[in-house]
Computed example of a mutant assay.
Amino acid sequence: MREASGERAVGQYPDATPAEALAYFERKYVELNGQVTLLEQRAKGGAPAADIAKAVANLQAALVNANAVGNLAALTERLGALGGTVSELTEQQGAEAKAQSAAALAERAAIVEEAERLAAEDPAKTQWKQTSAALDALFVKWQAHQHDAPRIPKGEANELWKRFRAARTTIEQNRKAFFAELDSAHKDVRNRKQQLIAQAEALAPQGADGINSYRTLLDEWKLAGRSGKKQDDAMWAKFKAAGDVLYSAKSEVDAAENEEFSGNLEQKLELLTEAEALLTETDRTKARTALSGIQRRWDEIGKVPRDQVKVVEDRMRKVEAAVRKLDDDFWKRNNPETEARTAGLAGQLHDAITKLEAELAEAEASKDAAAIAEATEALAARKAWLNAIEK
Rank of each mutant, 00 (worst) to 15 (best):
K391P: 03
S101R: 04
L135F: 14
A124Y: 07
A321C: 09
A202K: 02
E339R: 12
A255F: 13
D299F: 12
I294P: 05
A287M: 08
L265D: 06
K229Q: 12
K229V: 09
S101W: 03
A23R: 14
S5M: 04
I389E: 08
A290K: 15
A120M: 07
E31T: 12
E362T: 10
V245P: 05
G70R: 00
Y24W: 06
A57K: 15
E20V: 09
A124W: 12
L75I: 09
V319A: 01
D307G: 06
A49S: 11
A97W: 09
L217I: 00
N65V: 08
P48C: 03
F179G: 00
A363G: 01
A49G: 05
K125Y: 01
N71S: 04
Q93H: 10
A343Y: 02
G45Q: 15
V140C: 00
E7P: 10
G6R: 01
G243K: 04
P18G: 01
E172G: 13
G83D: 01
K193S: 00
R382H: 09
F164P: 03
Q194P: 00
A133H: 05
L160M: 05
A363T: 13
E77Y: 14
D328T: 12
Q194C: 06
A16R: 15
Q295N: 15
A369S: 10
A177N: 07
A234S: 12
N387W: 13
R296S: 15
A388G: 14
I52F: 03
L22H: 10
R8F: 01
L291F: 07
K187M: 04
D283V: 12
E220H: 02
F179R: 03
K98H: 02
K383R: 15
E121Q: 10
Q173Y: 03
R165C: 08
E181M: 00
T280C: 04
R108N: 09
I372Q: 09
Q93Y: 03
N191I: 10
D148N: 12
E121R: 07
R317P: 04
K141H: 14
V253I: 04
T216I: 08
T285E: 15
Q92D: 07
K268W: 00
N158W: 12
R27D: 13
D183Y: 05
S184T: 03
Y29E: 04
A358C: 05
H145A: 11
A322K: 12
R42S: 07
Q143F: 08
Q12W: 13
D148R: 13
I52P: 02
V36T: 01
E337R: 06
L218Y: 01
A9E: 09
H350C: 01
E40D: 11
I152P: 02
F179V: 08
D254A: 07
G45L: 11
D148E: 10
Q199C: 03
F330M: 06
